[in-house]
């Protein structure tokens, strides 16, 4: 397999980008639209000219054309060849490398099985669903046994459930194949779910590289602007309710979080992941907090509210139209719901 090193890469918005992806690592490149993520992938793939150097396994590959770099690349639009059926799409790279027909057939068969698309082999791309196309595109990218896999926001067009399912499957497959992978997304939660490490790219500069939790709990100022500064609560007391569920108390706030660890130091949540209501919400009283609204900051298309609850202060971000639909006043009583799925934790062992 292979490590990737980018040294002083400049092209379009990217200026002097330095980045290292370790052998067999899954690194997620996170950044807003126009940050230069796809440009970096195209540079690694050798599809565009650039300034600087790209190394695979510490050997420069700048002079190597795209068809000799042994890269698997999943484009955002997937770009399955519409005039080939599924099997022919997967076999395309092997045919171009003039592999013997029996070897091509065996490899295609193997990939159809791994990706669970055997029954689709004679279908054309227009006859496939979004998730099925995803699997075919991945099988095609893996057919040539690439040393590096590049994925450019591949789950963008899929619904939440399908993309979550595919992400989990892909993560397992990546680990099994041990293939160095660079995965591009603009979604922090997707990045956090997939990554061994995250590199945050903004306006063509790498702003921060680290473990997902490091990025979330200790974001640099530039990263804060992009993912939003999280609300971080220090935990005073932890009580394990059952396996996988822990009750934590952070000042006056009592929360139930999903964790296998008993000792939790900090809990964090992004302002846009807290729901705010001017009336007491119906349903069980879990992860709901009553507070007092102290500040309203309008900046279209969102409104940022600060809510004081005991010794804690929480920032909440909500869309303008939802804000306008409620009667919210400074010093008025409000209720907050902290979505358990969106709560991030730091335990004692981290």
């Amino acid at each position: 397999m292979s490590s990737i090193k980018l040294k002083d890469i400049s092209k379009y918005v990217c200026k002097n980008v330095n980045l290292e992806i370790f052998d067999k690592e899954l690194l997620v490149l996170l950044g807003p639209n126009g940050a230069g993520k796809s440009t970096l992938l195209n540079i690694i793939a050798g599809l565009i000219d650039y300034e600087g150097s790209v190394f695979f396994d510490n050997k420069p590959v700048d002079g190597l054309p795209a068809n000799q770099r042994r890269i698997g690349y999943l484009f955002q639009e997937l770009n399955l060849f519409p005039h080939f059926d599924v099997a022919a799409n997967i076999a395309y790279g092997l045919k171009m490398q003039k592999r013997p027909q029996n070897e091509i057939n065996a490899k295609v068969e193997e990939l159809l099985q791994i990706m669970k698309i055997k029954k689709l082999s004679s279908r054309y791309p227009k006859e496939l669903s979004g998730g099925e196309k995803q699997r075919v595109a991945l099988a095609r990218a893996l057919a040539n046994s690439p040393r590096i896999l590049l994925l450019d926001e591949p789950m963008n067009s899929l619904d939440y459930r399908t993309s979550k399912h595919l992400r989990t499957e892909f993560k397992i497959l990546q680990k099994k194949l041990g293939i160095t992978t660079l995965y591009v997304t603009h979604n922090f939660y997707e990045a956090e779910e997939m990554a061994q490490r995250i590199a945050v790219l903004d306006r063509g500069r790498i702003e921060q590289i680290g473990l997902p939790k490091e990025i979330f709990f200790h974001p640099t100022e530039a990263v804060n602007d992009f993912i939003g500064a999280p609300n971080i609560l220090n935990c005073d007391y932890c009580n394990r309710l059952s396996f996988g569920l822990v009750e934590v108390k952070c000042g006056d706030i009592s929360l139930v979080v999903s964790s296998e660890r008993e000792k939790i130091k900090k809990v964090a949540i992004l302002p846009e992941d807290i729901y705010l209501s001017d009336i007491r919400p119906p349903g069980p009283d879990v992860n709901r907090v009553k507070g007092r609204l102290t500040e309203i900051e309008e900046s279209s298309p969102t409104v940022c509210c600060t809510v004081i609850t005991g010794k804690n202060s929480l920032r909440v971000k909500l869309p303008q139209e939802i804000f306008a639909s409620m009667s919210l006043n400074i010093s008025g009583e409000v209720w907050l719901i902290l979505a358990p799925r969106k709560l991030k934790i730091i335990s004692d062992s981290e």
Partner: peptide, 11 residues
């Protein structure tokens, strides 16, 4: 992108 894909696949 179809051309890019084909090129990456060794064509």
């Amino acid at each position: 992108n179809y051309i890019f894909v084909a090129r990456i696949l060794g064509a």
